[in-house]
Structure formats: C-alpha cells, structure tokens
Amino acid sequence: MNAFRPFGLILLTLFSFTAPAQQMAGVVSYNRVEYWTKIYSRATYLSREEKDRIQQTFKNDDGETTKMKLLFTPDQSLYTYESEQAQTDDGRYSWRHSDYIIQRNFKDEKKTEIEETLGKTYLIEDSLRAPNWKVMNQIKDIAGHICMKAVTEDTVRNQKITAWFAQDIPVPAGPERYFGLPGLILELDLNDGDVLITATKIDFKDVSKDVVLAKKPKGRKLTDAGYDKLIGDYIKDSIKGHRFPYIRY
C-alpha cells in the first residue's frame, strides 16, 4: 500500500500565495511510451535466454506511444486519453481505448477513477491520499519548463517511480495516479524506464467545465484498498501461473 498523508495541510500553505489565474489552469498533452521488451524482462519466470531472445527479435518495434491529456485547475484535475480512439501511425486503422479516466478533487480531497481492466470496468471513489515523495537534486527542462526530480515507490506493483515537477506551475496535479508535488508533474517514469510519460505541450486556458466528469460514471464500485488488493492478487496469481501479469502500468 502506498503511504499516505493528509492532503489538506499541504494545500493550506499552497494557497498563501495567489498566482495569476492563467498559469494555474489548462491542458497538458503527454506522450505515453511503453517499452514492452523492458517490461517482459521483468518476468521472473522467463529464463535469461528467453528474455534476451525477446529483446533481440523485437528491439526495432519497441516503444509504443499513446497520447494522453491532463486537464488541470488549482482545485481539480482530469487525466485520460487524448481521444477515445487509438490510431496506427499512418492513421489507417483505429480502435477503441479501454476506459481510463482519473479525476481528482484537491479541494474536497476526493478522487474518482474509472478503469477498464482485468475484464471489468471499475469505479474507484475514495479520499485523496498522496504518495510518499522524496525530492532529489536534479533539474531538467521538459516542454519549456524547468522541473525538479522526485521519487516514490509503488508497493503494490513493486515499482520505482520518478517524477519531474514544474517549478513554475504550482498545481499539485500529475498524470496516471500520481500527484501531490509542489508543481505540475510533466514527466513520469514508471519502473526505471519501462513506461515513460512526457509532456509535449501545455495549453493554458480555462477548463473548469471539462475537468469534472460529464455524467455519472458506471462501474463496479471499489475503494482504493480494494483496487490495490485486486491488482496485487492478480500479479501474484499470474506469476504463480507463469502467465505474464500484463496490466496497465
């Protein structure tokens, strides 16, 4: 389970400073790249030879990119696919993305997540608990903003997470299920390069209408703890069954 801390305390101090509204709301476009030969090399039941063979054979096809977007305001954020349809590179063929919407309400400390995974559509409604971040000493430029590095750990999936947050966009939002840093997270590295989510551009504009879910979401209800147990059990079962535990990272 992720370590949690009450979120409200942090938020109080955040609002001691008012920033110009235009820098505090907008849409971030991300490129989500999955390196599945790296992901396969994590499987404990594959031999070194089998992992090498996957690496050697598919090294030219690695790096599958999906476009995502994050709408953010100082109070809320919404993260989902940029469009409902996925498309091949040449635009010839498109297919449906499985449902994936992550909505966060920082003011009320609530979260709503819709995820189609493991054969069902789940609705997770729970209170907001920020991950345990460690802030490091590196800075780099992403999409024109200087960002600082922070790391945390996902104990359910057993992964190391690296996030780069923008120093000049003081919104605690971020892609995937990560948030709670002093700035907007513009790059997320899941498990040491297995999946890389990088912001390509940021559009500052008013998104207060779109950052909330349009209609009441449908799905099997789960709490945060229930979701973690679902994923944890699946990974354990899959590894025991020598079946690759492929779930969305």
Partner: peptide, 24 residues
C-alpha cells in the same frame, strides 16, 4: 523572490513532508 517553492524534507531520506510558496 515571490512565488519561490519551499519544501520541507526529512533529513534521513529527503521525504517530502510539506511544501509552500513565498508570497509577494
């Protein structure tokens, strides 16, 4: 310098405890 980000970390492992911004 207004708008600078200020963070409090635990000395042992740099875990983020709290953060804020400087005012005007």
């Amino acid at each position: 310098l207004p708008g600078a980000t200020v963070m409090l970390l635990t000395p042992k492992d740099s875990a983020l405890v709290s953060f804020g911004r400087t005012d005007d």
